[in-house]
Each structure stands twice: as structure tokens, then as C-alpha cells.
């Protein structure tokens, strides 16, 4: 419980405060919930093995050759799950970008970050942070995908100018 609301409860016997702007009475909910999910990556483990070696992997349907990024273990064209892991071309062209100034609270440890989408030379597109000067970035320019260590200590792919 936040100290301010604790104090209000002590003083008034209720967790009710006045809204700063409108003055309307607000009950301050005491049942705080912290959310963090556990997400299965069991079927895409090779992707993370690839990251460790600085490679970007996608999946390819052995039957029809369809390439998937993000990787998926089932091919809806063939109704088949016989896929292979392939290293994607780590170069391509920039499609579009933005710079995220107002960040989600869970990203508050990072400075405003540019985000780009690139089309890799063998087809799939990829969205990632852009390591480079966003003001110099233009659609169609050559970019590469590389792996680096995040401030939070884990490995992730990013897009950078060639």
C-alpha cells in the first residue's frame, strides 16, 4: 500500500481521496496486481541458440519452402509441421521507422529508442530497434541485422546501417 493512501486511511478511516483536477471523490483500489507472464519457447529454442552465435534464424517448411519470421513450427499452407531452421540473410533494406519518445513504464530504463522495419534480402521482414542515427535513415537504404547485449543483460537482435 502506498504511504499516502495509508495516511488517508489512518486519518479518515477510508481510502477515499479527492481527484486533484475535478475534486470528485475517488476510492483508491488497494488490490494491486503485478503482471509478468511465462511464455513457452520450447518449439523455437533453436532461434535462441542462433542468437547466441550472432545468427538470425527463421523456419522453413520442408514441403513448400515457405519461410517464416517470426519463426513458427507449423505450416498452414501444407498442414505440415516438418520444418527446418534456416539462417536468414542478415542484410536487407529499410522499410520504415519511428522514434519512441514516450515509453511504456517497463522501458523507462532506456533512452528514447528508434524502431525500424527492414525487409531482409531473402524475403521476410523484421522489426527491431535501430542502432544508428534515425535522422540519416531513409527507406530503401541498406541495413543489417546484428545481435547485441541489452542494458538488461540479455541478447537481442537489432537493425543497423551497413
Amino acid at each position: 500500500m502506498k504511504d499516502e493512501i495509508k495516511k488517508v486511511i489512518e486519518e479518515t478511516g477510508l481510502p477515499i481521496v479527492q481527484d486533484e483536477k475535478s475534486g470528485a471523490a475517488q476510492w483508491v483500489d488497494l488490490r494491486e496486481l503485478r503482471l509478468s507472464y511465462v511464455i513457452s519457447v520450447e518449439n523455437i529454442k533453436p532461434f535462441y541458440e542462433g542468437l547466441k552465435e550472432g545468427k538470425l534464424l527463421g523456419t522453413k517448411c520442408k514441403k513448400c519452402g515457405r519461410l517464416f519470421f517470426p519463426p513458427q513450427k507449423d505450416c498452414p499452407s501444407c498442414f505440415d509441421s516438418d520444418i527446418e531452421w534456416v539462417e536468414l540473410k542478415n542484410e536487407g533494406t529499410l522499410e520504415t521507422m519511428t522514434v519512441v519518445f514516450v515509453r511504456p513504464p517497463s522501458f523507462s530504463m532506456y533512452d528514447p529508442y528508434p524502431v525500424a522495419i527492414a525487409k531482409l534480402d531473402d524475403g521476410p521482414k523484421i522489426l527491431a530497434w535501430y542502432k544508428g542515427d534515425p535522422q540519416q535513415a531513409k527507406p530503401g537504404m541498406r541495413v543489417k541485422v546484428q545481435v547485441s547485449k541489452r542494458k538488461e543483460g540479455y541478447l537481442m537482435y537489432e537493425i543497423a546501417p551497413v
Binding site: P70, E95, T96, M97, T98, V100, V102, R103, P104, S106, F107, Y110, Y113, V115, I117, L127, A128, W129, K138, P139, M156
Partner: peptide
């Protein structure tokens, strides 16, 4: 794939379109 590691916001998703359109 797009929020967990890259912190996209709702304005950012549309900004990717806004930039592409301008360019």
C-alpha cells in the same frame, strides 16, 4: 515479438505507417 523486446507503443505502431506514408 514486438512489445516484449522493442517496447512499441500504440502511437509508435501507427508512426511506422506515418513515416512510410510521408517518405
Amino acid at each position: 515479438w514486438e512489445f516484449e523486446n522493442f517496447g512499441l507503443t500504440f502511437p509508435a505502431y501507427y508512426a511506422l505507417h506515418g513515416t512510410a506514408y510521408m517518405m
